Amino acid sequence: MPRRADVVVAFVVGVPLFSLSVVVAVLSVPGVRASLLVGTCLVAHAAVAYRRYVWAFFVVAAAFAVQVAVTGLFLVLPSAALFPLAVYSCAAYGWRYPPLVVGMAGAGVAAARFATDSSVAAADLGPNPWLLFGLLAAVAVAAWGFGLYRRTQLAYVDLLRERARDAAAQATAAERARIAREMHDVVAHALAVIVAQARGGRFAPARAEEILATIEATGRRALADMRAAVGVLRTAPEAAEAERQPLPGLADLPELVERTRGAGLPVKEIVRGAAHPLGPSADLVAYRVVQEALTNTLKHAGPGASSTVRLEWTDDALHITASDAGGSAADTVHGGEPGNGLAGMRERVNAVGGILDVRTEEAGGFVVEARLPYRI
């Protein structure tokens, strides 16, 4: 099916040109030849509605080849203007080089037919056949060049669209990875606290009410954090932004430490230096680094383990050190491939321009060190 724009072009161009061509054909070559010229012009104008198809170009070329064969005065037909349009369209939307070849061959054949036409010789009409060939060749080359230019534009637009699709796919993948990291951090820490509380409750029945309250509070907070992480997947972007709960940061570290202590892990918090603005992303990363380190200690460190969280505000960056003693998370985490938590932690830190180091101390224990630069 032809495009609506091409049908409009064919109609707008065809009405005046075809009408004039009919008049010129009837007055110049009356009889059967006039009918043949009118018929070929009509076919050529109809083919313009399908100008983006290669076959339409050859239909137009064949129509004007018939005109060249019928009369050397074909140039007086206004419909001849369709041939450069066909060359342009084929070069832009179809084949690259055949339009130029056909155009140059058509210019040569037309000039030769003009030079050998008896009516032209009898009337002593000009111009010189060589000059006519140069003019027709120039028109064909110009139309072909504009077609290639349009072809390049369309290719560039397609490239931009492909890049936009790739960028959208990458953004989607990055958002999924972000949500996966958030879900891991929230669920892993909450479950670690719940498991530790439940394990402790087996040996301390008298604290059952306190332990159950802690489990309930941890579960509620985990549910709230999960809603904040995946809310964007369920609602429109504007609604999700409006409903999104504030993400945790360094201001929430005391609550995290207290919650971890309530799970049975002694945590010592040390802060040195004056605080500097980190920016929302780095602030969240700092919280998640400490959360993941404490979660690993809860899950993997042995009985009697303790943890130390040190925040040191230097002149150019925040240094975070989270270490455990009395047990070792290293045996589980580094006995094989690094877990998803550590991989996600490293991605977070690198994303804000920071550096993460995870190691096992010779004396036992697991150390997580992160350097987060300040917001510039």
Rank of each mutant, 00 (worst) to 15 (best):
S307E: 04
A222Q: 07
H319N: 06
C90T: 08
A61Q: 02
L278H: 02
Y53K: 01
V352C: 01
P84G: 08
T295Q: 03
P84E: 03
G354T: 12
E269R: 13
R371D: 10
A47P: 13
E369H: 11
G327A: 08
R375H: 06
V26Q: 15
L253N: 04
P246Q: 11
A140V: 14
L294Q: 04
E255C: 07
G304F: 07
A167F: 12
P84N: 06
V120W: 08
R52Y: 08
L159V: 08
L233K: 08
R113I: 11
A275G: 09
R176I: 08
G336W: 10
V59P: 01
Q153W: 13
R371Q: 11
G364I: 07
V195H: 06
G344R: 04
Q153V: 15
A177C: 03
R199E: 12
W95N: 15
D315E: 02
A177S: 05
A107N: 00
R244E: 13
G126V: 04
L20E: 10
A34I: 00
Y287F: 14
P254A: 04
D315W: 01
A63G: 01
E362T: 15
E175N: 07
A81R: 12
G365W: 07
R113Y: 08
F114H: 04
G353R: 04
G273C: 14
G304H: 09
L342A: 08
A228W: 09
A110T: 00
A329R: 01
A61R: 00
L132H: 00
A274L: 14
V141I: 02
A322L: 00
Y93M: 15
A206L: 05
A282V: 04
A224I: 08
T295A: 03
C41W: 00
I194S: 00
P16Q: 15
G353H: 06
P99M: 04
Q197H: 11
A240L: 00
L212E: 05
V367D: 01
A293V: 03
M104T: 07
D324T: 02
Q245S: 13
V87N: 10
D117S: 06
P2V: 11
G147K: 04
Q197D: 13
A80F: 09
S119G: 15
A138V: 04
A363W: 01
L36P: 03
G364T: 09
V26Y: 14
Y53F: 01
V101G: 09
V186K: 02
G327L: 05
V333E: 15
R51G: 06
E369D: 12
R348T: 04
G273N: 15
D315A: 07
A206H: 05
L100W: 09
V358M: 05
A204C: 06
T71E: 08
N128Y: 03
F74E: 06
V12F: 03
W144N: 08
F203Q: 12
G327R: 05
L73I: 10
A239P: 07
F64Q: 10
G219T: 12
V26N: 11
R310T: 15
H334W: 08
T360K: 09
F11N: 07
L250S: 02
Q170S: 11
L253V: 10
N296P: 01
V309Y: 05
A167Y: 13
S306G: 12
